[in-house]
């Protein structure tokens, strides 16, 4: 495990990494198969997909059917990977994923791109804040919010061979580099990016970078903050969450999703049962999405380092007031 965070962007856009990783997995395993709903161009798979129509199935703009076809392919002995934008890979085909997939014990890997505010210019109709909650209540599911391109490569490979329904939410643009290339990140294991004593921030996806920036700023103000990458939202690394909660006594959760039903909920469940300490979140306050640049939207929905900083100060104050 090599942490490579400097605050710089990883040079590889996630779309490129996503496309190359899907192609590699499907090319190397004759039982892996990839399906898309007319968004191969957005997943970086179009060129390879057109050349390999038996390995990359374009289902057209019909996500429910795609989910069902994936389940049928699983019955036939395949390990399907399906992709669409986050809202269409979750809300639009949820009953099909839930029943034909999960309930029918047909293992499917679902990739939902452009999670939360990363949907930016596509606006509110394309901006899933609820995908995490939906997939979290699917029994036996795995829910991942990707932290950087290296994380994407590692989790996608694992998901294909993991039982149940797996949901991976990942943007298509560049993300801050967190890990050294080739690092393997076992699903279900949180990663401590930074130690600290006054508070801990559990973050996922694009919020990891914001959390690291907040921690650096707070350090200069004399507040010592740990930052933990919770890229596996489900199953949550409860052991790591409780250990850091005990050590610091103050918790902030940062996620690019609705505060209800996502990482914050999962962390609060763990804390309530194992270590009830002051906690707060930086997440979307039960709102629908809207259009704008990602920068604008992060400010609009309160998803910045400054918001994390404020919440850390608030929980630390609550801890001291006890």
């Amino acid at each position: 495990m090599k942490i490579a965070y400097t605050g710089e962007m990883d040079q590889r856009p996630c779309k490129e990494v996503l496309g190359a990783t899907i192609e590699k997995i499907v090319t190397e395993d004759e039982n892996a198969i990839y399906l898309d709903a007319d968004l191969m161009s957005c997943a970086g798979t179009l060129k390879w997909g057109k050349q390999n129509p038996d390995r990359a199935i374009d289902c057209g703009i019909a996500e429910s059917n795609m989910a069902g076809v994936a389940a049928g392919l699983a019955v036939a002995g395949y390990r399907p990977i399906i992709h669409s934008f986050g809202p269409f890979a979750s809300r639009r085909c949820y009953d099909q994923i839930f029943l034909s997939g999960g309930y029918g014990k047909n293992d499917i890997t679902v990739i939902g791109t452009d999670p939360g505010v990363t949907a930016a210019m596509n606006g509110g109709t394309h901006m899933p804040f609820e995908d995490v909650a939906l997939y979290s209540v699917l029994p036996g599911s795995t829910v991942i919010d990707v932290s950087d391109p290296t994380c994407l490569v590692s989790v996608l490979k694992q998901c294909v061979y993991r039982p149940g329904v797996k949901y991976i939410r990942v943007g298509r643009k560049q993300m801050a580099r967190v890990y050294e290339d080739g690092t393997e990140l076992p699903i279900g294991k949180a990663v401590t990016l930074r130690e600290g004593t006054d508070a801990v921030v559990f973050a996922a996806g694009i919020m990891l970078h914001e959390a690291m920036q907040a921690a650096l700023s707070l350090e200069k103000q004399g507040v010592s903050v740990a930052v933990v990458d919770c890229f596996t939202i489900k199953p949550l690394d409860t052991e790591a969450v409780l250990a850091w909660a005990k050590k610091t006594g103050a918790v902030v959760v940062a996620e690019n999703a609705n505060r209800h039903g996502g990482l914050y909920t999962a962390v609060l469940e763990a804390l309530a049962e194992g270590c009830p300490v002051p906690a707060a979140c930086v997440a979307v306050e039960d709102e629908f999405g809207e259009v704008g640049t990602q920068g604008y939207l992060q400010k609009r929905f309160g998803l910045t380092a400054a918001h994390i900083e404020a919440q850390v100060k608030a929980v630390v104050a609550r801890k001291r007031a006890k």
């Binding site: 198969i33 038996d54 199935i57 429910s64 059917n65 795609m66 989910a67 069902g68 076809v69 994936a70 389940a71 049928g72 392919l73 699983a74 019955v75 036939a76 002995g77 395949y78 009953d95 099909q96 029943l99 034909s100 309930y103 029918g104 014990k105």
Partner: peptide, 25 residues
Amino acid sequence: IDVTTGSLGQGTSQAAGLALGNRLK
């Protein structure tokens, strides 16, 4: 029983996927 059904409509896509998968294999 080859395929789980009950939520109407869902057997159709699964049957199509199964037919495609069988042919590909």
